[in-house]
Design a protein around this nucleic acid. Structure first.
Lengths: 345, 345
DNA sequence: ATTAGCACTCTCATGCCGAGAGTGCTAATT
DNA sequence: AATTAGCACTCTCGGCATGAGAGTGCTAAT
C-alpha cells in the first residue's frame, strides 16, 4: 500500500515537507513550481497533490488552502526518503571544539550538549545523565562529620557517585571509619546487588548499617527519578508559530517538565521509525495526546550495559528531520566518546 | 509623599490588589462594593480611586475601564500594607511531611522544594543548590580507574562533592594513590585556597598534579555556573492570562532559561522591598526589560557563610504577595533546617 | 463628606463586504 | 495518455460600521 509512490510524487512530497518546514504555512501548487523551478505546471502539481492527499500523506486545512503534510506524510518521509546526511564539517568542528575545550567532566558536558542541541535544532532539547544499568560497586568512602553523623560516598563502576548520610548510635573516629571503608572496599570489589546478598550478615552494627546503605544506593540506581535531566531551549518551542495558541505550547512543555511524563516518554523508547539508532516519534503516535503537533527525536549514548543516557529534541512536527537527526547523532557520538574516555571501570 | 494615604485608601488599595489578583481584570468601583459589601457607595470609591490614581498607585487601561494597580501600587502594598501572615497549619504540615518522609539528601530535596514552590504559588520556581562561599577542604579520595586515569573525589566542608579526572604519565597502583590521598587529608585539613598557597611546592610530580587539581576545584566553587539550578512550574506562567501574547511569556521564561540572565538576577539580589529577608522584585524595576510584567520573589536559605543557596518564584505581577512570601519563607526555613542537619563540618 | 443620577467614552462582539489566494474541473494540446 | 491552460468556485482574512454594555467623571442634592 505504501509502495505506490512514483518518483515524482516522492520528489513533490519531499519538497512540500521542506517548504512547509521553512514557512510553517500550507504549501500552494503555484508557490512550489516557482520556488523550485519545477519542470511542470502548477496544474500537474495539483493533480499529484490530490493523489498524495487521497493516500493520506497530505491534508488541506480548508478547501482553498495549500497542502500540509500529515503525520503519515512525515513518517513516509522519515522512513523512505531521508538520505543519511552528514553535518557540514564546519558545524562539526564548531561543536566538537566546544566540548573539548572545556574538559571539565560530565556535569559540564551534559548541559553543554543540551544547549548545543537546542540552538542547532531551534527546539527544546533533553539530555539525561548516563546511568549504569547494572549497578556495580567500585569504591566506598566514609567521612566523619559530626559526632554521630557520617557522610558516605559511594563510587560505582562507570563513575557514578552517590552520597548518603548515616546516623550512628555512638560516635566513631575517622580512623575507625576509614578501616571499615577499607574492609568494604576489599570485600565488595565489583559487587553487584546480587553478590551483596550472598555476603554473610556482619556482626558489627556499624558494618550492618553501612552494608544496608550500600544496598540501598545500588538498588536506587537506574531509577530515572533523580533530578538529572538537562533541558534547554524550551523557549524555542514557544517561538514556533504553530504554538501561537498557548494551550498547545503548554501541554507540549508540560511533557518535558513533569517527570512522570518525561520518564514515560524516554523509557517507552518506541521503535516507530528507527534510523540508525535514532528514534523518531511523530505527532504523539496516538498515545501522547499532549504531543499531537510535536515530534520527538531521541537516541541513546554512552557504553551499552555500562553507562548510557538518552538525548534528543522536542520540536514542532515540521522540524527539519534530516538536519536534526544528523545533529543528534553527532552529539550522541561526541558524548559517547567523552563518556567512554572518562569512564571508571 | 507616600504617607498621604488615609486608612480608607489603604483598605481600598488592598482590596483592589486582591481583586485584581483574583480576576486578572481591571477592577470596577461597582464590583468592589458588591464583592466586599463595602459600607460606602461606588461613587465614593470612585473618588478615592481617582485620588490613588493621581498618586500613581493605580492606573486605568483606558477611559472607561476599571483600575489596575501600578508597580508603585504593588510596592506600596508590599512595604506598607502586608501583615506578616503565617501559612495555615495544614499546609505547613502537608509540605513538611513531603520533605521529611523522603530523607534522601539534597539532590532529592531541591527538586522537591522547586516543585512545592511551583504548585503552591502557581508560578515558576527557582531553587539553586547551596554552595559554600569560602571553599574549605574536608576530604580527598583518589581512585584508580584505568592504567593512567585517576578519579579524584573532593569533599568540601559543607558537604559539597566535586569530582575531576587526572591523567598521569605513568600508572600508579591504588595503594600508592590511597597513600597520597591520606597524606593530603592530613596536610590540608580545613585548608582554604589561601592556606593552600602557603604550602611548599611538592617535589613529587603526582603530588604536584593533585595539589593543582585541588586548587582548581576550590577556586571553581562559588561560581554559580554549574548546572545546579532547579526550575519547576514553568508552564504555570504560560497559564496566566497576562501572557496570552507569546512574546511576554517567552521573554519571561528566557530569563530563567539563560544562565547568564538568571545568574545576574540572583546575584543582583536587589534590596528593593525587603520583608524579613525576602526580596521582592516588582516589574523588572527598570533594569529588567524582560520582566516588565513579572515579579520575582527570592530569599536565601542555608547556613550563612558556610552553605547557602537561593530560592524563589517568578510569576505575574499580580501574584499573591502575602501567600507567596509566606510559602517561600516557610520552604526556605525547611531547607535551612535540612541543610544544617546534614551539613558536613 | 457622601451619594444619586446622568452624560460621556471606550471596548468588544457581531455581521457584512470585497479582495485575494488556491483549488478542482473541463477542455484543449502534445 | 499525460500535461496544461483557463476559469469558476470556495474559503479565509482584513477592514469597517454598528450597537450593546461597562465604567467613569462630574454635578447637584443630601
Amino acid at each position: 500500500m505504501t509502495k505506490e509512490l512514483t518518483e515524482r510524487q516522492k520528489l513533490l512530497l519531499t519538497l512540500i515537507v521542506h517548504e512547509h518546514s521553512r514557512t510553517a504555512l500550507p504549501v500552494a501548487s503555484n508557490a512550489l513550481v516557482r520556488q523550485y523551478s519545477l519542470p511542470m505546471s502548477s496544474a500537474t502539481v495539483r493533480n499529484e497533490m490530490t493523489a498524495l492527499t487521497e493516500m493520506g500523506y497530505l491534508r488541506q486545512p480548508h478547501t482553498s488552502a495549500g497542502r500540509v503534510p500529515t503525520e503519515e506524510g512525515y513518517r513516509y518521509l522519515v522512513s523512505h526518503l531521508l538520505n543519511p546526511t552528514t553535518l557540514p564539517a564546519t558545524t562539526r568542528n564548531t561543536i566538537s571544539h566546544q566540548f573539548y575545550q572545556s574538559p571539565q567532566g560530565l556535569d559540564q558536558w551534559l548541559p553543554l550538549a543540551a544547549s548545543v542541541l537546542a540552538s542547532h535544532s531551534q527546539a527544546a532539547s533533553i539530555v539525561t545523565a548516563p546511568h549504569s544499568e547494572r549497578a556495580t560497586f567500585k569504591h566506598l568512602e566514609l567521612i566523619a562529620t559530626r559526632a554521630t553523623q557520617v557522610l558516605m560516598v559511594l563510587v560505582l563502576v562507570g563513575g557514578e557517585i552517590r552520597q548518603a548520610f548515616l546516623s550512628l548510635d555512638t560516635p566513631v573516629s575517622q580512623e575507625a571509619l576509614s578501616q571499615v571503608a577499607a574492609r568494604f572496599n576489599d570485600l565488595c570489589r565489583s559487587a553487584t546487588l546480587e553478590t551483596l546478598d550472598k555476603l554473610p550478615v556482619p556482626s558489627d552494627s556499624l558494618d550492618q548499617q553501612v552494608l544496608r546503605a550500600i544496598r540501598d544506593q545500588l538498588s536506587q540506581v537506574g531509577k530515572l527519578v533523580t533530578g538529572e535531566v538537562y533541558l534547554d531551549g524550551l523557549t524555542n518551542v514557544l517561538a514556533e508559530p504553530e504554538f501561537a495558541e498557548m494551550d498547545m505550547a503548554r501541554s507540549a512543555l508540560r511533557v518535558l517538565e513533569e517527570r512522570p511524563l518525561l520518564n514515560d516518554l524516554i523509557s517507552r523508547t518506541i521503535m516507530t521509525e528507527k534510523v540508525g539508532g535514532v528514534q523518531v516519534l511523530i505527532g504523539g503516535e496516538g498515545t501522547w495526546e499532549e504531543l499531537r503537533d510535536c515530534s520527538v527525536i531521541l537516541t541513546r549514548y554512552g557504553v551499552p550495559d555500562l553507562l548510557t543516557g538518552t538525548l534528543g529534541v522536542l520540536g514542532p512536527m515540521r522540524i527539519s528531520y534530516g538536519r536534526t537527526i544528523s545533529t543528534i547523532r553527532f552529539v550522541a557520538g561526541l558524548l559517547t566518546d567523552l563518556v567512554s574516555q572518562t569512564m571508571v571501570d
